[in-house]
Structures are given as structure tokens and as C-alpha cells.
Design a protein around this nucleic acid. Sequence first.
DNA 1: CGATAACTTGACACAGCTCAACCTGGGTGG
DNA 2: CCACCCAGGTTGAGCTGTGTCAAGTTATCG
Lengths: 232, 232
Amino acid sequence: MAKLDESLLAHLPPFSLLGREQIREILDLATSQRFEEGATVYHESEDAGRFYLLLDGTVRALHITPEGEHVTALHVPAGQLFGIARALGRSTYPATVETVSEAIVLWWPMSLWPQFIARYEGFATETYRTVGERLGEMQTRIIELSVLHVEQRVASTLLRLVDQTGRKAEGGILIDFPITRQDLSDMTGTTLHTVSRLLSAWQKQGIVESRRKQIMVCEPQSLTALSTARPA
Amino acid sequence: MAKLDESLLAHLPPFSLLGREQIREILDLATSQRFEEGATVYHESEDAGRFYLLLDGTVRALHITPEGEHVTALHVPAGQLFGIARALGRSTYPATVETVSEAIVLWWPMSLWPQFIARYEGFATETYRTVGERLGEMQTRIIELSVLHVEQRVASTLLRLVDQTGRKAEGGILIDFPITRQDLSDMTGTTLHTVSRLLSAWQKQGIVESRRKQIMVCEPQSLTALSTARPA
DNA sequence: CGATAACTTGACACAGCTCAACCTGGGTGG
DNA sequence: CCACCCAGGTTGAGCTGTGTCAAGTTATCG
């Protein structure tokens, strides 16, 4: 395998306090791997044998119910760790992870985890911060699912995606990975039909513009208004 | 303040690996405090100045929306740590915590946190396990809110409460703290009216028996069936 | 240039919300 | 100690948001 460049890690939060040599050390322990769009990295409740760093692309953590319904728990943007079951005192992965777009990852055997925590300054702190952030996201999801209507949930989910992965484009902000109505409905706990109707309606009003597997938000303020509107 | 007895902590997971002296040390640093039923221990986004151990009673973590709606995130049974913002890399509390019944807690200033993590064997591990468990609970909540109907959610919430805090009683298993229809609806993202209707119906079928602020489950199997039934 | 995955749209039904009116048990203060 | 108060609970009536069922259209890819 080609030697990995130190600049890959040096600026990422979990490693930002480390020197050249330590980064080199970490890279030499790592394996890099490429995944196709839609590939599964690991399955829920599988033995957590590796922890990962997402170098490029986006992945999502999801659950599949016994009835086969998909529930998307969260999205992980490039630059973050995932599969960090050990940080949660678990020996199995808590969710299935699959790639949303093509992805490049580094991974290490989980047996190195204690060493990473003990030896690399800032790694533990940043890891736990990441856990905290994800917990916060999940709380937001719970609150939204509990008190908001479908239209509001879809609106605020779109806003969150724009915020996390938006890319400026001609006439609006583009969500920077392929996303279907079904995906959006898995994130909001509704059906692809309802999402489709909402997007159609919003498109007529010029709030969004969507093609197949692609959504561009033209008027974020309108979505913000929709996401907080008092229903009735 | 009266000296606290070492047996209070010795058998609890975060401290189970520690010797007498270390437990003594920890107790001498602790402050004990009693809270009335329904008292607020701390508020969401408040500066996280202390971390807590719940010695007796039950507390719940909840969020209050700008519109004043309450969303219950989780329940903490006696013997667990809470308010452990630092374990999540946060400096503010992520939720409001209030007591469900009378509660006795110990607390320590958050400034001692790094010392607890570094010095007391097993404390870190157990803390992160607790975080992992709570994250798991939240995931379950998200899945349930996404794919289950109200009736199923209320049924499985009741089952969870029975499981976590159930006490064997004459004719069924009693949920061991005062709980209103409103509380249950805050946990399931519905209204107190719907919960009331469900409980009435279930009572007619002999599945539960409920008085004011009290619910007893007589036929857990029936609830299990309801919670997994394919709607339509 | 099929085949198929993604998407759209209409018609309809109903779970569960809202509004409203009413009970009731248990705590408390006069 | 008992009458009052009110938080907590019940139940009905009606409406509507959203799911379900169904039938179609349109991109994209091998």
C-alpha cells in the first residue's frame, strides 16, 4: 500500500495536538479502504473489531427493524471518527453504517483503542466530544419526532443537511450527496409519498429545486419559517 | 453533615473496583442532598458545575421546547451517575433533570472530574458504559417514534418502565413511582387524552390497572403483543 | 432501448389530535 | 373535621394530517 501522507490527519481534531512522529506512527498502523456508494461498512451488533476515520465522503448510521424498515440515526461527515464502540463501553457496533457517497476510510484494529486513548494527547477528549455531539443530535431527533409535524420535521432535516454538507451552487445551496425521497423519509419517520408531495409543493413555491437524487435549497428562510410554524 | 457510610458506594459499578480507603476519600469529597418529588436538580444548558450520583429515588432527563411542551429523554434509576456532561466533552448540561419521586443524591464539583477519571480504577470505564447505554436507549426511542404507532409506543414504554423500576405487587407489577397520563404522553410523543383512552381500554381488558398517578401492569404478555402488532 | 429505480399524483380512510365538557379523589385551610 | 378546591383523569364529537393503495411518468444505466 502507498504510504499515507501526514497532512491527512494533522489538522483533524482528534490528532491536532500530536507531533509529526506520532502522526506517522498512527498512519503506519492504519489501513485505508475505499467503499462504493451505498456499500455497508459494518452491521449493527456485529463484533466491533475496528474503529474508523472517514477521510472522504459521507456515511450514515442506521437501524433496520425486524419488519425491514430503515431508520437513519445520523450522518457522519468527512473528518470524523466512527465505529467507536469502545468509547461507549460496548464490544459490538450500535448501528449499521453504510456509505452515502463513495467514501475513503482509515481503520485500526480495536485492540489499539486503549493505546490511542492513553498515548495520544487530545484523542480521548475529542472522541468524547464527538460522542457528546452525536448524543445531542439524537436528542434533537427525539424532540422533533415528539412534537413536530411531518412538514416541520422534513423542513428542519433539510436545513440540517444544508448546514452540515451544503455546497453553494447556482441559485441555492446544494445538498452535497445523493439523497432520495426514501432517504429523507427514513430520516424523518414518514413515507416517501409524503416527502414527495412536500418537495413538489415547495418547488412550486420556489423554496427548493429537486432532481432525481438531488435537492437544492433556494430559500432557507422559508424552510426555517415552515419548521417552526405553529400548526393550526 | 453526618459521615457517609462506605457501603453506600462500595457495590455500585463505578466504584466496585476501589478499596475502602479510596471510597472513604470519595465520600469525604461528596456532598449529599435531598430533593422533593418534582424538584429540579439542574436546567438544560446551565453551566455543568457538578456531577451527581443518584443514591435513592428516580430522576428523569427532559427537554422543554420553546412552546412549553415537555419531552422526556430518559429515566435514571437509583445507583447511576447523572449530570456527567464532562464525559461528553460538554461544559453545560444537555438536559433538565428533575426528580420523579423523592431523591437522595451525592454530588461532587465538576473540577474533580479529571481526578476521578484518572485516579479511580474502573470509574472511567463504567461511566462510558453508562453513556453507551443511554445512547442505546435514545436510539430505541428514535426507532420507536419513527416506525411505531402511538398504541405500540405506549405499550412498549410501559413495558420498559416495568422492566426498569417494576415492583411485584398484588395482581401484577407496579411501576414504582408516581406517573401521570401526561408523563406517559411526554415519553411517547402523544397527548394525555390518547394515553387516557388507551389505559381505559386496557383496563377493561384486564391488561393494566391504574389509579391516579399509579399504573400496575397485570398482563405484560398482552402489552408485548400490542407493542409488536402489525397495524392493519 | 428495454429495464428498472426514482419519483409523482390522485383517491380514500382512519389514527390520533383538538376542543369541550365533565368527573373525582385527596389534600388543606377555615 | 368537613367543605371546598383543583390537579389529575375521563369521555364524546368532529376534523385533519398523513398513511395506504393504486396507477402512472420519467430519468438513468447497462
